[in-house]
């Protein structure tokens, strides 16, 4: 176990297990760079930290640049280690996007993990660019009107050697992707959908079920883009056929944050998901 239990995560929060699963693969010689996010709290305070690898806390928008510097310094000492940015969706796709893009464009030899809980959860559930259409947050009390910012695609457009999506419900798929990413030189990006019980308004016993439903409904396709080549992975490989995908409503109805969505809006979301899969079918 790389991350001690009894840390400050909320009940049902997947983040500790997600970090553990990452470190199980990357090992002791890993540096985590963590911008402002839930993990800033989970990693404890000056009384002690739960991590068994070094953790460098970062200002909100700075993590990819700090990681670039750490890697450069380790290289100059000829010290081999995996430098990982571990960032939330706001730190990745909103305030941190310029720094992320800069590091991706320079093809820095770092790994970037975005744990996406689809809002500013650490500050109490405010909307981010990665909050999905229809979702309640404290700053979108009637539901978000805009769509989710497609960060994995944006990163992939930089031409980096590895981009993947992952889910805590498919942990072997996630760890296989981390393992692959670890062996690749250059900028590697993995985007984890990370269900949040208080923010998404579901019972803390349902985290994995909801993570699973996100994949089964096709809302969260599991894939990897290796050297520009797109490939569906795990269960998502079997979901090209629309009949194999569960209706998105099954995913939505377990979460209080979608409770204000009208049937029209649900239909609109279902259509968007279906269109997305049609696009995938063309590439895959």
């Amino acid at each position: 176990m790389m991350l001690m239990r009894g840390n400050a995560a909320c009940p049902g929060c997947p983040i500790p297990r997600e970090i553990d699963a990452l470190l199980e693969v990357t090992g002791q010689k890993t540096v985590l760079v963590v911008p402002a996010s839930c993990t800033s709290v989970i990693m404890g305070d000056t009384n002690g930290m739960p991590s068994s690898v070094p953790v460098v806390h970062s200002a909100f928008a700075a993590a990819p640049a700090i990681a670039s510097g750490i890697k450069a310094a380790l290289n100059s000492k000829k010290e081999d280690a995996t430098v990982v940015v571990w960032a939330g969706d706001g730190g990745t796709g909103d305030i941190g996007l310029a720094s992320l893009s800069g590091a991706a464009e320079r093809n820095e030899d770092i790994m970037y993990l975005c744990y996406d809980n689809e809002a500013y959860m650490n500050t109490g559930v405010q909307r981010s660019g990665l909050t999905p259409y229809g979702a309640w947050t404290t700053t979108t009390p009637e539901g978000k009107r805009e769509r989710k910012k497609p960060i994995p695609q944006i990163v992939a457009e930089h031409g980096v050697p590895y981009v993947a999506t992952a889910s805590i419900a498919y942990i072997f798929d996630y760890q296989a992707k981390v393992k692959k990413a670890k062996e690749i030189q250059g900028f590697r990006y993995i985007h984890l959908l990370s269900p949040c019980p208080p923010g998404w308004r579901f019972d803390s016993s349902l985290t994995i079920r909801i993570a699973k439903l996100a994949v089964e409904t096709g809302i969260w396709p599991l894939y990897e883009i290796e050297k520009g080549k797109f490939r569906l992975t795990s269960l998502s490989k079997t979901l090209i056929d629309k009949s194999k995908r569960k209706p998105v409503l099954e995913y939505l109805k377990l979460q209080g944050r979608f409770s204000k969505m009208t049937s029209e809006e649900v239909k609109k979301l279902q259509n968007e998901v279906d269109e997305f899969w049609e696009e995938i079918q063309k590439i895959d």
């Binding site: 640049a65 700090i66 670039s68 750490i70 310094a73 100059s76 320079r106």
Partner: peptide, 23 residues
């Protein structure tokens, strides 16, 4: 190593990271 960053915020962030790791 000259890190040609995309902003001054990242310039100082990068040298901060490198300084932590001993450069």
């Amino acid at each position: 190593k000259m890190i040609r960053v995309e902003s001054e915020h990242s310039a100082l962030a990068a040298v901060y990271g490198a300084a932590l790791a001993g450069s």
